[in-house]
């Protein structure tokens, strides 16, 4: 069976995100929002083959931890994982 997951990856909270900071500066300076906060990240759509939901989830988690993120640097969230 095929399972499709949507994954969000962000730098860990205590690691400065220069792209986010720069975007905040622009938002503040232009007056679009003077107190806007921005964190940038990555979004992945992943489709895996697995026998059942449990093995699919394990596989997705493994991919998140070993390929899509480096736990020293980034955190991830599985937004959605369902049978395709």
């Amino acid at each position: 069976m095929k399972f499709k997951a949507e994954i969000k990856v962000l730098l860990k909270d205590d690691i400065k995100d220069p792209q986010g900071i720069q975007t905040e500066i622009i938002l503040n300076r232009t007056g679009i929002d003077e107190s806007a906060k921005v964190r940038t990240g990555k979004y992945f759509i992943l489709t895996v083959n697995a026998k059942n939901e449990e093995t699919a989830y394990k596989k997705i988690k493994n991919i998140c931890e070993n390929v899509l993120t480096n736990p020293c640097l980034e955190k991830y969230e599985i937004l959605k994982a369902e049978k395709e």
Partner: peptide, 17 residues
């Protein structure tokens, strides 16, 4: 080497962007 965990830590985007 950092990504392979042969050395500790990681390298990310420069603070100046």
């Amino acid at each position: 080497l950092c990504e392979s965990k042969i050395l500790p830590g990681a390298l990310t985007i420069n603070i100046s962007n």
